[in-house]
Design a protein around this nucleic acid. Sequence first.
DNA 1: TTTTAGTACTAGACACTGTCAAGTATGAAT
DNA 2: ATTCATACTTGACAGTGTCTAGTACTAAAA
Lengths: 192, 192
Amino acid sequence: MAPVKSDALRRVVLDAALAISANAGPDALSLREVAREAGVSHQAPYHHFGDRAGIFAAISEEGYAELGDALLHSRTHGATSMCEAYVHFALQHKGHFRVMFRNDLCNVGNYPDALVQADRAFSILLDEVTTLLGKDASLNEAKAQATYMWSVAHGLATLLIDGPLEKKLGGIEDVNALVKQVAQLTSTTIHA
Amino acid sequence: MAPVKSDALRRVVLDAALAISANAGPDALSLREVAREAGVSHQAPYHHFGDRAGIFAAISEEGYAELGDALLHSRTHGATSMCEAYVHFALQHKGHFRVMFRNDLCNVGNYPDALVQADRAFSILLDEVTTLLGKDASLNEAKAQATYMWSVAHGLATLLIDGPLEKKLGGIEDVNALVKQVAQLTSTTIHA
DNA sequence: TTTTAGTACTAGACACTGTCAAGTATGAAT
DNA sequence: ATTCATACTTGACAGTGTCTAGTACTAAAA
C-alpha cells in the first residue's frame, strides 16, 4: 500500500482499527500491522494518538457521539424505538461498541473529549426515561427504571455481538424482529 | 515464592489468572508473570493448559459450572430470584465472568468440557423461562421472552462490572437493592 | 533389573509487540 | 534567515506467546 500523507493517516489508522475491532476484536489490534498496511513507519500512528489507549479513546469518542445521535433521533418515537436504536447502533458499529465499554483498553474518564460524548449519550437516555415516568415517580424508582432499560438494551446488544445467543436459540431467523419484540417487552414495563 | 509441586500448579495458575482478570481484566494476564510468581519456568503453565486460550477455556468451564449451580439453586424461587442470581454470580466471580463471554480470548465451542457446562447453564435458564410462560405460548414468544430475560441480567451485570453505571447514576448506595428492583421489573413483564 | 513410556517440568531461541529516544524533512511564522 | 512546530523515520529495549529440544522423575512392562 502506498504511503498516506498528512493527518489523513489519523483516519486511516482509525478505520483500520475499527475494522480489526469489528472482525477479530480490539485486542487483536497491532499498531505495527496497521502502520505496515498504511505504508508508514511503526511510529507514525503513535504520533497521532500518543499510545495504544489513545486510539481506543478516539474510537470511544466517535462511538459515543454516534450513539448519542442515534438515541436523539429515536427519542421522539418512545422507549421501544430507543431500545431498538441502541441495539442497532451496536450491531452496525461493532468496532466502536466493542471498545466503548472496555475500560481496560482506555479509561474514558481520562480523555475529556471522549467523556463529553459519553455523558451526552447517557444524558439523552436518562432524560427520556425520566420523561416517560412522569414527575410522580420517586428518584429511586427513576434510577431503577433507567438502569433496567439500559440493561436490556446493553445486554441484548452484547449477547448478539459476542455472546452465544445465536447458537443457544437455535438460529435467529430475523434479528431485527427479535430486537423489536424484546424492546416492546421493555417498554411494556416502563409504562406500567 | 517457592516453587509449586505437581499439578497443584494448575490451580495456582488458574487462581492467579482469576485474580488478574478480576482486577485488571483478562487481557492483562501474562503467562510469564504468573510463572514467575509461582516460582516455576515460563513454560510450566504452558504444559498444563496448552496455550493462553487454554487457560481461558479452563476459567470459562469453571465459571459456567458455577453459574449453572447458582441458577439451579435460585430456580425454585422464580424469575426475580433467577435474575438476581445471575447478576450476583457475575459480581462475585468477576474473574470468571469477564472471560466467559469473550470469545476472542477462547472460543468455548472448541473446548468440549467448557461447552458442556455452558450448555447446561443456558438450558437451566431457558427451561425456567419456558416453564414460567406455560404451554400456551408460541415458540417465537418463548424465544423472545428468554432473550429478554437473559439480556436484562447480562446487561445489568456487564454494566455493573465494567460499565459506567456507578458514575452516571451518581453513585449506587445499595447495589443489591438496585439489582432486586430491576429483577422485579423483569419478572413483572414475564408474568404478564 | 533393565527398558520403556509418560509426566512435569527447564532452557534457549524466535518473531512480534508497545514504547522510549533521537534524528530528519517540510512548511509556516517571525 | 532563523525559529519552531508538525509529521514523520530509524533504531533500540524489555516484555510477550509460542516452538523446539532437552532433563529429571516415576511407574509400569519386559
